[in-house]
Design a binder for these strands. Structure first.
Lengths: 208, 208
DNA sequence: GATAGTTTGTGAACTAATTCACAAGCCCTC
DNA sequence: GAGGGCTTGTGAATTAGTTCACAAACTATC
């Protein structure tokens, strides 16, 4: 299959979330133009994005909401249950562990790890906090698919080394540093400082 | 000035964070190639990004670390103190309010708001939680520059209406919905479900 | 102060992403 | 079952973003 751009994948995700809302409203079909307007893009963009994976619509009519939902879930790999571990038993991890939306989409948080001895062994969001050193042997039975790294910057390189050793191939990184990983490991960075700086830039340069 | 792409701004932010690390190490100059390697890009990209704002380097030598830091901070608008309010006294807001990196970069969280009567009036991360209804009158004296919206999806449209009414022109949105705002308001979305779905896609399509 | 060795800054070339524009296909009505 | 009214799917055109490649400019050395 042709390489799919990250921006395309983000939009597919967005379309899916719109479709879920529409499904709840009980509507059964939707046009590319309606989806486009909800997402702040163009109808051509929507059709092009979808056409990369097949042709799911009916000319003159639009897309069947449940069918397109199903297809998008399939494309995004949301058919299976993904096993997620959180590294760093802090606020960010807690926000993720609590959010019901993840479980609904098949992301199950089944382990939490930390370096802090004071936290290890304690209950945290219905899970026992374990030592990072245990990650590798735990992953033999837990088979984690995704690691959420939410540790302070200074600990993160060591933590990532453990994650890689555990054979985990996908990382959601909240630490404000760049991770060094082999090519077969996918990383998505969420960097709140960067987002705030983007807003700062926008505020400082309005009107030029 | 020429329109600057969001991807460029993100990279500038990234360069700045590298420079801060390098500054701590005590190095005084750096080449575009070194910066590029840290950020996983090319030296040409680095030079092009910087050249959009001026020419800060010395041929044959590279860039002065403190000078380039200063310039980047200026470009990104980090010279001034930005006043930030957090809407939604939950885990995400708490993670932001606590992170020392923000204060260091000039983002000061000076107010927290919530809809939940049980939270209003309580202390939260050294701040008093206030009612969202108070945002508009508070912003007269607080002059918030940026609102961090971290509320459940269902409350978010109403919350955003209040934010706009308070005259705030920059929003960092963590709610998993698309915000409708006028053109002079800048929004950055952080959507963790979307990030996890991106990883799910990558895991499901490895090797094609 | 000439030469060798670097590294910047930037047009030009290239690649990727988005938008245009329209034939093809479907529904509905008469 | 023919015609009108929509909306898709997709090549072509356009726009945006990245990389190339090299002259210009600087340092260091002799």
């Amino acid at each position: 299959m042709k390489r799919i751009a990250e921006s395309t994948v983000r939009r597919l995700s967005l379309y899916l979330s719109f479709l879920e809302g529409i499904e709840r409203q009980g509507l059964t079909t939707i046009s590319s133009d309606e989806l486009a307007q909800m997402g702040g893009t163009t109808s051509a963009q929507v059709r092009k994005d979808l056409s990369l994976f097949g042709s799911f619509g009916k000319r003159g009519l639009g897309y069947s909401v449940p069918e397109l939902s199903r297809k998008l879930r399939e494309i995004l790999g949301l058919g299976k249950e993904w096993r997620v571990c959180i590294i760093g038993a802090g606020k960010i991890g807690a926000a993720l562990a609590r959010y019901r939306g993840f479980a609904e989409r098949g992301f199950q948080v089944t382990g939490v790890y930390d370096v802090d001895d004071a936290k290890i062994g304690k209950k945290w969001e219905n899970l026992n906090v374990r030592a990072i050193a245990d990650l590798e042997k735990d992953s033999a039975k837990h088979a984690y698919d995704i690691a959420v790294v939410a540790t302070p910057a200074e600990n993160t390189p060591a933590v990532v080394k453990q994650v890689l050793r555990a054979g985990i191939k996908a990382i959601l990184n909240f630490a404000p540093i760049q991770l060094a990983v082999p090519a077969d490991v996918t990383v998505r960075n969420v960097n709140m400082a960067m987002e705030l700086e983007g807003l700062s830039f926008a505020l400082s340069n309005r009107g030029d």
